[in-house]
Design a protein around this nucleic acid. Structure first.
Length: 466
RNA sequence: GCUCCCUUCGUCUAGAGGCCUAGGACACGGCCCUCUCAAGGCUGGAACACGGGUUCGACUCCCGUAGGGAGCGCCA
């Protein structure tokens, strides 16, 4: 493993389901790693005990695996930088807290949440940026002792240096420049002793040898803080690429808080992970290739210069298109594996293949196939009003003639000559009587798979007029 | 309020000063195929937020305006 190896990471917090925005972030980190022959690290950011739920950790791993992502290091596979859960990295954080404190680069802050809230509001009301006022920045030993005596548990704040320019290159947005004077001293350790996000996130990236990180654009203005912190500790930050946010079709942020679209929901709706990845890959990233791509293809085509800087809207219609492409590209064996589980047990292989040949062109989601298997193999048949009317209109004679022509299997030409009907006058009553609806897959292959006795029974139903 | 980011068809996007009569994909319309739907083939409509510069020439560069978004949290 050379020193130049690209190491990316995906660092979700297990406080909810994996949403599309997270999934895309994970995918892009994976693609960047694959593209450069590197690896990805999975890290669980569970410092907020109140919001963390253990079920989300396993759900998250399941979702990412389902998407086809793979990480070389993580809580489930271990690795040289273990542990991979922030809740277990306290001693590492402690070491750097001590360093910062002893060098007076951080100081205890005794302000209460209430005091801070009041300060923030009054600053905002006065038309000023809501920044930490610096109340505890230079407390005298006596003043500090007084706070301690009152039993106030302090947080730890990072002392942001004044009059510094923080510059860096963003993988997506290019050169960035910020002024340290615009940044207030921020909390790096909470009252309960746990590490806060700015801190743990930056420390972990540095100590886990992460070299590149694709993350949401909401972190762009956090980056100077993290660089300052790492700089003070003599640690080197990874390169960050800030990706535009993913919005819903309605233009609202597709975040944990607002979005209802999770990987789990899409999977349960019957979408293939490859289809989802194809859509995600083109959200905020462009490729001249309009073909359905595998993850390896995507890795080859992944290009940081083709990352879009403006927000993208998740479009269910486009997801559906990729899903449709996925179905269209299914080999016979793959289609069999996909659809067999929803068909009646004990079906002959020829019947399974006949079913697939008949319905696959009309199938996008597994749900569609389920509907047709129900119509073809199910006992009861539900009729749409229009179909019922169309069947009745053909008259009992049509159906008794047709039913009489059904042998072991229903043969279209035998039925045609028996009824003497042709064209739509022949097909539509048949379609209506056999499927209960006016639209669907071609009738010939459909008839080939439907058991002969069922065909006869459904035809006879309309032969008894009245 | 301050700082930062963003703005090309309905949507995803191509475009790095002349290659742009702005290209592709999805969606939508039409035609063909056809028992219907789907699939497939052909085809059509559809965009540079606005205003100033710079330049022989601007979607591309600069400056403003408008609009959208993020951050400024003991949330990540």
């Amino acid at each position: 493993m050379s020193i130049d190896t690209v190491v990316t990471r995906f660092a979700p917090s297990p406080s909810g389901e994996v949403h599309l925005g997270n999934a895309r972030t994970a995918l892009f980190n994976e693609l960047l790693a694959r593209r450069r022959g590197g690896r990805m690290v999975l890290r669980i950011e569970d410092t907020d005990a109140a919001r963390t739920q253990e079920v989300f950790v396993s759900a998250l791993i399941a979702d990412l695996s389902w998407l086809g992502l793979r990480w070389a290091e993580g809580p489930d596979v271990g690795g040289p930088h273990a542990p991979y859960r922030q809740s277990q990295r306290g001693s590492i954080y402690q070491r750097y807290f001590e360093q910062l404190e002893s060098r007076r680069l951080a100081y205890p802050c005794y302000c209460t949440s209430l005091e801070l809230e009041i300060s923030r509001r009054s600053q905002l009301a006065a038309g000023r940026p809501p920044r930490y006022a610096g109340t505890c920045r230079d407390l005298s030993p006596a003043a500090r002792q007084a706070k301690v005596d009152r039993g106030v548990r302090p947080t730890l704040r990072f002392r942001v240096p004044s009059a510094q320019r923080i510059e860096f290159e963003d993988l997506v947005h290019g050169h960035q420049s910020f002024l340290s004077d615009d940044i207030g001293d921020f909390i790096i350790r909470r009252e309960d002793g746990t590490a806060a996000f700015f801190y743990s996130n930056a420390i972990d990236d540095a100590t886990m040898s992460i070299t590149h990180v694709m993350r949401g654009e909401d972190h762009l203005t956090n980056t100077p803080r993290q660089r300052l912190l790492l700089g003070a500790l003599g640690l080197s930050p990874p390169e960050y690429g800030h990706m535009s946010l993913l919005l819903g079709a309605d233009g609202t942020p597709l975040s944990k808080r607002h979005g209802a679209v999770s990987v789990r929901e899409l999977r349960e709706a019957g979408y293939a992970s490859a289809a989802l990845c194809n859509h995600l890959f083109r959200l905020g990233h462009s490729t001249p290739n309009n073909a359905f791509l595998t993850l390896d293809d995507m890795a080859r085509e992944f290009d940081l210069t083709h990352l879009q800087r403006s927000p993208a809207h998740f479009d269910p219609a486009q997801l559906r298109h990729w899903q449709s492409e996925w179905v269209r590209a299914l080999s016979r064996d793959e289609a069999r594996a996909w659809l067999a589980p929803m068909l009646p047990a004990g079906l002959a292989p020829e019947q399974l293949d006949a079913f697939i040949a008949a319905v696959l062109p009309n199938v996008v989601l597994a749900e569609d196939a389920r509907l047709w298997q129900q119509i073809i193999f199910g006992e009861a048949l539900a009729f749409e009003d229009a179909a019922l009317a169309a069947a009745r209109a053909a008259g009992p004679a049509f159906f008794s003639a047709a039913a009489g022509a059904v042998r072991e299997h229903a043969d279209l030409s035998a039925l045609r000559s028996a009824t003497g009907a042709k064209g739509a006058a022949f097909f539509m009553p048949l379609r209506a009587a056999l499927t209960g609806r006016l639209h669907g897959p071609e009738l010939a292959p459909l008839l080939a798979v439907m058991p002969g006795e069922r065909v006869r029974a459904r035809l006879l139903h309309f032969a008894r007029a009245g």
